[in-house]
């Protein structure tokens, strides 16, 4: 079973004192990571991504915790020796975390903010680009993009993989002969028109209903 946990943190910036208090609850390396962010929105998203992962690991990976998370040379977070895989993504007002004890997983969520996609054509296969224009091109672009990105993150090499090499077809992705299972998940009906989310997994495991983590569970005081 694959689990998807998420939290919605809103657009309002946390007051500096509240932000500092939450940052202080993270392990030192994660504190440095959040505090080094120069863009406020990015800093808030990174903080909530870290708080969500901390909560998920506490619930599902005990005795492993956030301070045990390592990074590969390609910057993919992992837990050495733990029989579970996880992946985090954030965009707009959401942070999401996918977790599995049986297969390798990747997740990508994107807020559909970009309207100009014409310049992106060289990064897609001709057939993909043609299919993208059969319906709402912006929606189709984000669908294709989050599929490829989720696979790149599950693989672990991220943007070091040429996007064109990840070929998507009928909820499956092929990357250099390796098959990944990709599935689209809607978080809430209200945000279905604004966000696209895909999970990639090395096995066709079922995905449990998304589980929202409240501010109360994250021990965050709402702004």
């Amino acid at each position: 079973m694959i689990e998807l946990w998420y939290t919605a943190f809103g657009a309002a910036a946390l007051p500096p004192a509240v932000l500092a208090a939450h940052v202080a609850r993270l392990p030192p390396a994660w504190q440095r990571r959040v505090l080094a962010c120069r863009r406020p929105a990015r800093q808030q998203a990174t903080l909530f991504g870290a708080l969500l992962l901390q909560h998920v690991l506490r619930c599902r990976a005990h005795p492993y915790a956030l301070e045990h998370v390592l990074r590969t040379p390609d910057n993919r977070p992992y837990l050495a020796g733990a029989a579970l895989d996880f992946n985090v993504s954030h965009s707009g007002r959401y942070a999401v975390c996918v977790l599995s004890t049986t297969c390798r997983v990747g997740v990508d969520i994107e807020e559909r903010t970009r309207t100009r996609i014409a310049g992106f054509q060289p990064h897609f296969q001709p057939a993909e680009w043609a299919a993208l224009h059969t319906a709402d091109p912006q929606e189709q672009f984000y669908r294709l993009w989050t599929q490829k990105e989720a696979v790149a993150k599950a693989d672990g090499r991220g943007l070091n993989i040429p996007l064109r090499d990840i070929r998507i077809r009928h909820q499956r992705a092929n990357l250099a002969g390796t098959c990944w299972h990709v599935r689209e998940i809607g978080l809430t009906e209200a945000d279905a028109a604004a966000y696209t989310l895909h999970i990639a997994a090395s096995q066709p495991e079922p995905i449990a209903a998304p589980r929202q983590v409240s501010f109360l569970e994250l021990e965050v005081r709402p702004p």
């Binding site: 120069r38 863009r39 970009r114 060289p122 990064h123 943007l159 040429p162 996007l163």
Partner: peptide, 27 residues
């Protein structure tokens, strides 16, 4: 700057639009 992966595609568009440099693979 904390740019994201779609921003990488935007950078390739900037290279093409303003400097005539075609990049097909951000990797």
């Amino acid at each position: 700057l904390g740019l994201d992966s779609i921003d990488a595609l935007e950078l390739t568009v900037i290279l093409s639009k303003y400097y005539g440099i075609k990049v097909t693979d951000p990797a």
